[in-house]
Design a protein around this nucleic acid. Structure first.
Lengths: 205, 205, 205, 205
DNA sequence: GATGAATGAGTATTCATTCAT
DNA sequence: AATGAATGAATACTCATTCAT
C-alpha cells in the first residue's frame, strides 16, 4: 500500500523522504476513508507498513502530518490548475475554466477531493490559497465590466461554498457533469451574468 | 447554569423532563463553545449540574443527545420561521423572507447558529427538514414563472450552502445586515432573477 | 494487599477515601521496594487492586500521589515524635531523644524509612518540616550554653545527613542500636560536647 | 561542544578514543545539568555531535557510560588529591587537608561535583574508593592517639555524608569557604577533637 | 567505525460506560 | 431517578536498541 502522490514524488529520494512520503500517502487515504477526526497515528503507520514509533521520527503530531498532506495535495492541484490559464483573457471564461478544472482535478483523485473537503474547515490556509486566484479573476471581471458585484471576502466564501457543494455531491453520488455545469452557471449568475449568458459560457464541451 | 431553550420548554413538567432539559441545554452550550468533536459526556452533566451517571438515565450515547438537541432547536427555528408565511404569495418574496428570517433567528441565539452549523455535516436530517419548505417555494416560483431553474436536490444544497455561509460568517464576525442582503440577492440571481430585480426584492427594511 | 497506614486511617471513611488510601499505601510500598524513579502508575493501581484509570479519579500525576504519601507519613512520624517531648528540658537530651526516636519510628516501618530516604532529595518540604523542630532545639542548647555552635541552615543539613546515614544503613543491614548510639554521639560531638559527655548522654537504655 | 576532561585526555589518541571521549564528556555535562534519571542516549550523542547509533559502538548501555564517566572523573580527583599528601604526617591535618582539597577540586569543576553527587547513590564503587584513603588516615589518627573513635564502615559513611553536604550546598549556593571550614571542624569534632583544637586546625589560610 | 532511520515495547492518559448505593 | 466511584479499552507518545548502508 505504498503508492500515492507523495510516493511518486519521492521516487529516487533518500530513505527518509520515502518513509515520510509513505506516511503522507497513508494519511491522505485514511482521511479520505474516515475523516480527519477518526485519524489515528497507529493507523497511519500501519497503513504505511511501518512501526508506530516511526511516525514521531518525522512529524510531531497529527496536525503536522495533516497540514503537510493537505498543503502538498493543494499545491499539486494548484499546479495542474494553472496550466494554460494565461491564454484565457475573458474573466467569465477564466472563472468557469478554473471552477470546472478544479472540480475535475480533485474528483479524478477522490482521496484528494475528500481530503480537501475535510480540510477546508480546519485548515484556513487551504481556503486562503484558493481565494487568491479567484479574487484576481473577479477583479478582472469587474474591470472588464462583466461582473456586477463588489469583490469581498464574503463573496469569495460564497463561490467556494458552491464549488465545495459540487465536489462533495459528486464525491458521494459519482461524477455528474451536469452538476459541474450547474455550478458554473450558478456562479456566473451570482456574478451578475444573465441566465442565457451563463448557460452559453458553461455548456459542456 | 440551567437556563436555556429546553429548560424553558420544560417549565412545569415533571422532574425527569427538567433533568433531561438541563442536559440538552448543556449540550447546546457546549457544542456552541467547542464543537461536536470536543463534546464529552462528563462536561454535559457537569455543565448541567448533575452527576455523570445521570446522563445514561436519559440518553444512550452522545449521538442521541446531540440529535435530540439539534432537532429540538431546529423545530423551534422552524416554528418561528413559519409565522405569517401564509400571507406571502410571491415566491421570490417567500424565499427572501424565509432566508432572512432564518439567518436572523439563529443569529439571535448564537448557540443555535453554532449548533446547526456544526450539525449540518453530521445530521442529514436537519438538512432534509429545511429542504422541504424550500423546495415547495422553489416549485411555486417555477409555477409562477419567476424562477428559471430546474428544482433538484443539488440546487437545494447550493442554496443551503449559501445560507450556511451567511450564518457562519456573521457568527464569527458579528451581525452584518449587508451580508444577509447579499445572500438573498445571490440566491435570487441563482434562481434566475436579474440583478436589478434581486436588488429590489432584497433591500433591507 | 490493602493494609497500610492510610488504609487504617481511612477506616470508616467513604469509599472514595478508602480507594484513595489504597493507592497511597500501594505507593508507599512500591517506592520502598523500587524507589521513586521506578514507580509506575499501573503498578500503583495493580498493587491497590484497582483498574488503571482509577488513579486519575484521585490524583493528577505521579508527583501528586508521591507528595501526598510522603507528607502523610511524615506527619504521622512527626506526631509520634512529639509525644512527651515537652517534659524534656535539657537541649542535648532533646536532640538525642528526637534523633533516636525518629530513627526507631521510621525503622519500625521500613517502608516509611525507605520512602522518606527516597523523598528527601526530591521533596524539600520534608526536609524543611524536620528542620523546624531541630532548629528550635539547637537554639535552646545555645541559650543553655550547652552547644558551641552557630545555628544555620548548613548545620541543620549536616545533622539531617547524619540521621539519614543511620536510617539508610540500618535499613540495608538491619537494626543495630550501636549505630543509633553512634549517630547521637556524633551529633553531640558536632554540637560541641566532649566525647565523654556525648557518650554519657547517648548510652542506650 | 567537544571540550572536557576526557577530550583533553584523549588528545593524540586514535579516533576511536576521541569519539569515546566526546561521549564521556557529553555524559558528564548532561548528568550535571539534568541528573542521571533524565539522561537519554540520544542526548549524549547529540551533545557529542555524533549520530545516535555511534553510542553502541562504544558502550553497551547507559549504566556503562555513566560508570566509566564517574570512575574517570573520580580517578582524576583522586590523582589531584594525592599530591604532596605524603609530606603530611599528622592524621588530623591529613583529614582536614584531604577534605578541603576534595571539596575545592570538585567545586572547581561544577560538572564533576554534580556528577559525583548524583553518582554516590547509584555507584557504590565511588564511595568505596574514597573510603580507602580515608580509612587509612583514620587508623593513623587512632594509632597517633589523636582520634577517639572506632574505625568502621559506618563512621566512614558519616564523614562522607558531611563532605557531600558541603559539596551539594556550595554547588547550589555558590562557593563559601566558611562551609568548608565548618565541615572540617565538624569532622574533627566527630573524631573526638575538642572544638578548640578543631577550630585551630581548620582555620582557612 | 560511523551513520541515522526504523523499531516496538513500555508508559501515561483519556473518557465512554457500568453499577452498587 | 440520581449519584459518583470504578472500570478498562483506546490512544498518544517516548526512547533504548538494532541494523542496513
Amino acid at each position: 500500500m505504498n503508492i500515492g502522490f507523495f510516493h511518486d514524488r519521492a521516487q529516487g529520494a533518500n530513505k527518509r523522504q520515502r518513509t515520510r512520503a509513505a506516511m503522507l500517502d497513508a494519511t491522505v487515504r485514511l482521511v479520505a476513508q474516515k475523516g480527519m477526526a477518526a485519524l489515528r497515528i497507529n493507523d497511519i503507520t500501519e497503513e504505511a507498513g511501518l512501526a508506530n514509533g516511526t511516525f514521531y521520527n518525522h512529524f510531531s503530531d497529527k496536525d503536522e502530518v495533516l497540514l503537510e498532506a493537505a498543503l502538498g495535495i493543494a499545491a499539486e492541484v494548484s499546479r495542474q490548475l494553472d496550466t494554460d490559464m494565461t491564454e484565457i483573457d475573458d474573466a467569465p471564461s477564466r472563472v468557469v475554466t478554473a471552477t470546472r478544472r478544479f472540480i475535475n482535478i480533485v474528483l479524478a483523485e477522490p482521496d484528494w477531493a475528500a481530503l480537501l473537503i475535510s480540510g477546508t474547515e480546519h485548515l484556513p490556509q487551504l481556503r486562503d490559497d484558493a481565494s487568491q486566484y479567484l479574487r484576481a479573476d473577479l477583479e478582472r471581471g469587474v474591470a472588464q465590466g462583466r461582473f456586477e458585484i463588489e469583490v469581498s471576502g464574503f463573496l469569495l466564501k460564497q463561490i467556494l461554498a458552491l464549488i465545495q457543494v459540487a465536489v462533495s455531491s459528486q464525491l458521494l453520488a459519482g461524477l455528474d457533469a451536469r452538476q459541474t455545469d450547474q455550478t458554473c452557471e450558478a456562479i456566473l449568475r451570482m456574478l451578475g451574468l444573465t441566465p442565457a449568458d451563463a448557460r452559453r459560457l458553461c455548456a459542456s464541451a
